[in-house]
Measured scan of single mutants.
Amino acid sequence: IDAAQIVDEALEQGITLFVVNNRLQYETSRDSIPTELLNKWKQHKQELIDFLNQLD
């Protein structure tokens, strides 16, 4: 699994991931984030931050 897949998966569930001051953040209108997704974010945090920083 790679960062792009995780970002896409989040988007499919209505969650936008982004980076502020090198910290992973998210925006969503959902009430809660699925635990499975949160765990993936934690496991791949640095990859996600690097990936999202490249997009900007």
Rank of each mutant, 00 (worst) to 15 (best):
I1L: 10
I1H: 09
I1C: 11
I1N: 08
I1E: 08
I1V: 13
I1T: 10
I1F: 13
D2H: 11
D2Y: 12
D2A: 11
D2F: 14
D2V: 14
A3S: 05
A3C: 12
A3M: 14
A3K: 02
A4G: 09
A4Y: 06
A4I: 05
A4S: 10
Q5E: 08
Q5D: 08
Q5P: 03
Q5R: 13
Q5C: 07
Q5I: 08
Q5G: 13
I6Y: 05
I6C: 05
I6V: 06
I6A: 03
I6G: 01
V7E: 01
V7K: 02
D8P: 01
D8Q: 15
D8V: 14
D8H: 15
D8I: 14
E9K: 03
E9L: 04
E9Y: 06
E9W: 05
E9S: 04
E9N: 04
E9V: 03
A10P: 00
A10T: 04
A10S: 05
A10E: 01
A10K: 01
A10V: 02
A10Q: 00
L11G: 05
L11R: 14
L11A: 13
L11C: 14
E12A: 12
E12S: 14
E12P: 01
E12N: 12
E12F: 08
E12V: 09
E12C: 11
Q13D: 03
Q13S: 07
Q13G: 05
Q13P: 00
Q13M: 15
Q13Y: 15
Q13C: 09
Q13E: 08
G14S: 04
G14R: 05
G14Y: 04
G14K: 04
G14F: 04
G14N: 05
I15N: 01
I15M: 03
I15V: 10
I15T: 02
I15G: 01
I15A: 03
I15D: 00
I15Y: 08
I15P: 00
T16D: 05
T16H: 14
T16Y: 15
L17M: 05
L17N: 00
L17Q: 00
L17R: 00
L17W: 02
L17E: 01
L17T: 00
L17P: 00
L17G: 00
L17C: 04
F18R: 13
F18S: 10
F18G: 05
F18W: 07
V19F: 03
V19G: 01
V19A: 06
V19R: 01
V19H: 02
V19Q: 03
V19D: 01
V20P: 01
V20N: 07
V20L: 10
V20G: 05
V20I: 11
V20S: 09
N21R: 06
N21Q: 08
N21P: 00
N21S: 06
N21H: 07
N22V: 04
N22H: 07
N22I: 06
N22E: 06
N22K: 05
N22T: 04
R23F: 11
R23E: 15
R23Y: 10
R23C: 15
R23Q: 15
L24D: 00
L24Q: 00
L24N: 00
L24T: 00
L24C: 04
L24H: 00
L24P: 00
L24M: 03
Q25K: 11
Q25A: 12
Y26F: 10
Y26R: 01
Y26V: 05
Y26G: 01
Y26N: 01
E27D: 09
E27Q: 13
E27S: 15
E27V: 15
E27F: 15
E27I: 14
E27C: 15
E27H: 15
T28S: 09
T28M: 04
T28L: 04
T28C: 05
T28R: 03
T28N: 04
T28W: 05
S29D: 12
S29V: 09
S29Y: 09
S29P: 06
S29T: 11
S29F: 10
S29A: 11
R30G: 06
R30I: 06
R30E: 05
R30D: 05
R30W: 05
R30L: 11
R30S: 06
R30A: 07
D31W: 04
D31I: 09
D31R: 07
D31H: 08
D31K: 09
D31T: 10
D31C: 10
D31A: 10
D31L: 10
S32V: 11
S32R: 09
S32W: 13
S32K: 09
S32H: 11
S32N: 10
S32D: 09
I33K: 01
I33Y: 03
I33S: 01
I33G: 01
I33T: 03
P34A: 05
P34W: 02
P34K: 04
P34T: 05
P34F: 02
P34N: 04
T35S: 10
T35W: 11
T35F: 12
T35G: 10
T35Q: 14
T35N: 11
E36D: 11
E36C: 06
E36L: 07
E36G: 08
E36F: 09
E36I: 08
L37M: 09
L37K: 04
L37R: 01
L37A: 03
L37Y: 05
L37H: 02
L37E: 02
L37C: 05
L37F: 07
L37D: 02
L37V: 04
L37N: 02
L38N: 03
L38W: 07
L38I: 11
L38M: 10
L38E: 06
L38H: 04
N39D: 12
N39R: 12
N39E: 14
N39H: 10
K40H: 05
K40G: 02
K40T: 07
K40R: 08
K40C: 12
K40Y: 07
K40L: 13
K40V: 08
W41P: 00
W41T: 02
W41F: 15
W41E: 00
W41R: 00
W41M: 09
W41Y: 04
K42Y: 11
K42M: 14
K42G: 07
K42N: 13
K42P: 01
Q43Y: 08
Q43F: 09
Q43T: 09
Q43G: 05
Q43A: 13
H44M: 07
H44I: 05
H44P: 01
K45N: 14
K45H: 13
K45I: 13
K45D: 09
Q46C: 08
Q46V: 07
Q46K: 11
Q46M: 08
Q46H: 07
E47I: 14
E47H: 07
E47V: 13
E47C: 08
E47L: 13
L48C: 02
L48Y: 00
L48E: 00
L48D: 00
L48I: 15
L48R: 00
I49G: 01
I49S: 02
I49R: 02
I49P: 00
I49T: 04
I49C: 04
I49L: 06
I49V: 08
D50K: 10
D50Y: 10
D50I: 11
D50F: 10
D50C: 07
D50T: 10
D50M: 11
D50W: 10
F51I: 03
F51W: 09
F51A: 02
F51L: 04
F51H: 07
F51T: 02
F51V: 02
F51G: 01
F51N: 01
L52C: 02
L52P: 00
L52A: 00
L52Y: 02
L52K: 00
L52H: 01
L52W: 02
L52Q: 00
N53G: 08
N53M: 13
N53H: 07
N53W: 06
N53S: 12
N53C: 09
N53Y: 08
N53E: 07
N53P: 03
Q54D: 09
Q54V: 07
Q54G: 13
Q54R: 12
Q54L: 12
Q54Y: 10
Q54H: 11
L55H: 11
L55I: 13
L55A: 10
L55P: 08
L55C: 08
L55D: 07
L55Q: 12
L55T: 10
L55F: 10
D56F: 12
D56E: 13
D56H: 14
D56S: 13
D56K: 10
D56R: 10
D56N: 14
D56A: 14
